[in-house]
Nucleic acid binder design. Sequence first.
DNA 1: ATCTATCGTCGAAGCGCTTCGACGATCCCA
DNA 2: TGGGATCGTCGAAGCGCTTCGACGATAGAT
Lengths: 335, 335
Amino acid sequence: MPTINDVARAAGVSPSTVSYVLSGRRPISAQTRARVQAAIAELGFHPHAGARALASSKTNVLALVVPLRVDVNVPVIMQFATAVVTAARTHNHDVLLLTKDEGTSGLERVAHSTMVDALIVMDVEKDDVRIPALRRLKQPSVLIGLPADPAGTICVDLDFAAAAAETLRHLAWHGHRRIALVGPSPSVYRRGTSYAERFLAGFTEASAELGLETMTHPCEPGRPGVRDCLTDIDAELPGVTALVVHNEEALRPLLDQLRATGRRVPEDISVVAVCPRDVALSMPIPLTSVDIPSHDVGGLAVETVMKLLDGRHTESVRLLPPTLVERDSCTTPKP
Amino acid sequence: MPTINDVARAAGVSPSTVSYVLSGRRPISAQTRARVQAAIAELGFHPHAGARALASSKTNVLALVVPLRVDVNVPVIMQFATAVVTAARTHNHDVLLLTKDEGTSGLERVAHSTMVDALIVMDVEKDDVRIPALRRLKQPSVLIGLPADPAGTICVDLDFAAAAAETLRHLAWHGHRRIALVGPSPSVYRRGTSYAERFLAGFTEASAELGLETMTHPCEPGRPGVRDCLTDIDAELPGVTALVVHNEEALRPLLDQLRATGRRVPEDISVVAVCPRDVALSMPIPLTSVDIPSHDVGGLAVETVMKLLDGRHTESVRLLPPTLVERDSCTTPKP
DNA sequence: ATCTATCGTCGAAGCGCTTCGACGATCCCA
DNA sequence: TGGGATCGTCGAAGCGCTTCGACGATAGAT
């Protein structure tokens, strides 16, 4: 492995000049630059990351903390991760993968040992124990999600409250008045993952504004959970004409169950989902849905980190506006 | 951030002694060790990763290359990734996440700049262009998958040929004689992902050994693909009593299609899947399946890397034996 | 009692890079 | 035509750690 000294010698310049060619932090004449670059290419020189980190206090590495729970949403998490890696690469950064179950100590380990310049944390909970720890680090961090008290943190996410409003507005426009929300499983609420509550709050508020008759119901995973959920909904809100489903995992069994009980979608009942585009498209009927734009959120997280890293100011909370795409699962209710 | 010098001063020893306490590479008296450890704890000292890498030529970081293609198998990939991260942590290593689409240059970048000690590469193709590049690196690497010519590489994977044999043996034992393989989509074969071919070869061979009447058919994704596939199978192998499905994505639509055409599983037709356990369990009927043990394979990959890193010898190709788990989708055919 | 290992610790020399200050050369404006 | 800016380059001082050789002290072998 050639070093910067080898390059310097080959190009007939000093090592510092090579460094300045590489970093562009000082002007270098065109001829010198060319000679240096030729030497670099010829020797196949790559700067040693550790040496660089030591001298410059910059690693060009981001930590990404993903939940490793293998329950719901695995594809979404993967989408976030690849979005983050791709975006990071465009800024010449690499990504160190951490799992959420290492908890606070994992964050502190990589931060204190200066392995990373900044952190991106997924699956943030309402009162996430990691947040105080993050605040103490010298490295900046961006949360994907929204804790109860975002003060002193930087957060990006989809605007789930607006997403809920959007689904109701769409259904109301189609003429629906009795609408039920099939929410995530109770464990998601219990865990305090804030998107569930934000969606719920947005749903309730928009329902009142639009003067709709609505109800909300969490939904346990699996067929029995879905069956119970639908039974409860029919009991509590008879004549319901539309469902808003904020539960990827329940989506498929729910459609199965509707079909099994002879209710056609969308003729007998409309369905609006909140899920990634490809999930909406992979269902027996392409579903009208509000997209969960993992790619955009991931990209935004990286952009925000980069802003922080070069000292630019950024707003504390940034929620992306939702987009509803009309497909085949939603129509005007029969009179 | 305190440095090793701060610790040394606080403990009244030299920096090298602190280093030896940390690494254990030289004997240190119990008292001294205690004083040093107390100082470390009190100051909250964490060694600087870059400095360490520079001085020791070890980063304690592994590169993991994942396919970022968002088509099939995303959950499986995620399972591999988390398995690798978890296993790496038990060996005090972290994981740098690379995407396959950076190709050869991504590998060379992280290797040449000494960001990682070793590489784990997923989604290996038959004549993977990255293999020659990997051979050139000074860092060792482990492939998850099996290229056409594994010479000079270290590979781990599930034994897909044995898995195919296992499915046929199980079905034959149940009394099935006419069996069709629903394979991955043609694009998977085209891409040269070797597990498809290995499964196919194992299937054909075992079929001959067991004296069965079988056929094989790739299956395009989506409902139409599945419908066509089933039509072809019925035409070519009338009276087929069992299907082996090596195509996660097709699994669900296939079951739907069978039901839609009035064929009950397992009463009218048996199904054995090759897929992760949780996929087999999430189907309308729990499927008899051969597990794809992502967790084990990922763990094995890390163990193998660690072996290589401390210079121990290891065999070139290691294929894990398959496990078939009997569930509810397979029974004795009606006479 | 002498010689040789071994133990426990220290000092110093790097590992490969960045960055600061310095310095001659060039340029522009008065 | 001289004075200060600016340009282009160099040298040297670290960044924080590991590791090698050295050395006194202790222990075991002869």
